[in-house]
């Protein structure tokens, strides 16, 4: 169903645009505590970059960079980071996601530790959201293809 797009214009423009889009998404993720945005929005833009790559360059080019298996692993890792930071705060004697307690592990004051903790949680959420959105898009877009892949593997 997905074949390599023969359209020169969309292909070239997305080739030039995708790296900048990914950098913008990472900016939205990393500056979540200064400006609007954060994990969820950044993850969605990141997934949109990969979606543009699928639409313009075809599935093979995208699989070289982020395969379906890697997307599955990344979604689990994202949830693990989020829950892990929360549970770490719980172990250190605070509430769930009580970032101030992280200053016992990191060599910084509690305010700084709170900022770092929020950053880590946002990275985790962004990874999970990106991987899940990408997987959903692939599943919808390649409706007829998965069965053929299964057959060839057997």
């Amino acid at each position: 169903m997905i074949r390599d797009s023969q359209d020169v214009i969309v292909k070239t423009l997305s080739r030039l645009l995708v790296p900048f889009m990914v950098i913008y998404a990472l900016y939205v993720i990393m500056h979540g505590h200064h400006s609007p945005g954060g994990g969820f929005q950044g993850g969605v833009i990141l997934a949109a970059g990969f979606v543009l790559l699928v639409v313009s360059h075809g599935l093979e080019q995208t699989r070289k960079r982020l395969s379906e298996k890697a997307a599955g692993v990344l979604s689990s890792i994202g949830v693990f980071i989020y829950a892990g930071i929360g549970a770490l705060c719980l172990i250190l004697g605070g509430n769930y996601l009580d970032y101030g307690k992280l200053s016992k592990l990191l060599p910084v004051v509690p305010a700084e530790a709170r900022s770092l903790g929020i950053l880590g949680v946002e990275i985790g959420v962004a990874l999970a959201v990106m991987a899940v959105m990408f997987t959903i898009f692939l599943v919808i877009f390649t409706v007829g293809e998965f069965q053929e892949d299964d057959r060839s593997e057997k």
Binding site: R15, L16, V18, P19, V22, I23, Y24, L26, Y27, M30, H31, H34, R65, L66
Partner: peptide
């Protein structure tokens, strides 16, 4: 251009992000 924060922490974060992105998309640009 996007960030506007020029302290070492944000610059390091930006360098890490740029290296990851450039590793993924080095053949596109």
């Amino acid at each position: 251009l996007l960030s506007g924060h020029f302290d070492p922490f944000h610059l390091t974060l930006g360098a890490i992000c740029c290296i990851i992105t450039a590793y993924l998309f080095h053949d596109l640009l």
